[in-house]
Amino acid sequence: MIIREELHERGRIYTISSDGRKCRVLLTFHAIERAKRWNLSIEEVLNALIFPREVVSGHHGRFIAHYPLNDHIIRVVYEYEADLPVVVTVYKPRKERYFKGGGGYEDRVLPRC
């Protein structure tokens, strides 16, 4: 999935390949640290972002991708700068708190790539 990784002033840009498409995603240093805190790999975070089970609207034009993981969900909070998806933060709360059951998509990263 990850085919390239490069340093950016705000974090790291990952170039991923999925379904014959290449997509670049910026993970901020904050998001990378939060992923470590929640014992999530970068691959798990990117998978939740690219293949979410639902996406809801957040504050200030942001989106939140949900990906179920046992009794929890991976929540990936992201926004766009130009056409570049920027992951602001990530965390792993209990599923019943936020997950609506899947299928609702306010946004999809992959078609934008």
Rank of each mutant, 00 (worst) to 15 (best):
V88F: 10
V86C: 08
I2M: 14
P111E: 11
G102K: 07
H8V: 03
F99V: 04
R34I: 10
S17L: 12
I2C: 12
H8R: 07
V109I: 09
S17E: 15
S41C: 05
G11W: 12
H30R: 11
E54P: 00
I13G: 08
N39M: 06
E6Y: 07
H60I: 01
L69R: 15
G103Q: 08
G58N: 02
L46C: 03
G11K: 07
Y78V: 01
R97H: 14
T15E: 14
V55Y: 07
A65I: 02
R75E: 13
A65V: 02
H30N: 04
A35T: 03
G61T: 02
K36N: 11
V88S: 10
K92D: 05
E6A: 11
H30V: 04
D107L: 02
F99A: 07
H30C: 04
R108L: 15
R34A: 10
G102C: 06
F29I: 00
V55F: 06
G11N: 04
L69Y: 10
P68M: 10
H59G: 00
E79Y: 10
R21P: 00
V88Q: 10
E33N: 13
G20V: 10
K95D: 10
V87S: 08
E43C: 00
V76I: 11
L40A: 08
P52I: 02
E79T: 14
H66R: 08
L40W: 05
D19M: 12
Y91R: 05
P111Y: 11
R24Q: 14
M1C: 05
F99I: 04
E106I: 01
E43I: 01
L7S: 15
V55R: 04
E54S: 02
F51P: 00
P111K: 08
P85I: 07
N39W: 09
C23E: 05
V76K: 02
E5A: 13
V77S: 10
V88E: 13
I2R: 15
S18F: 15
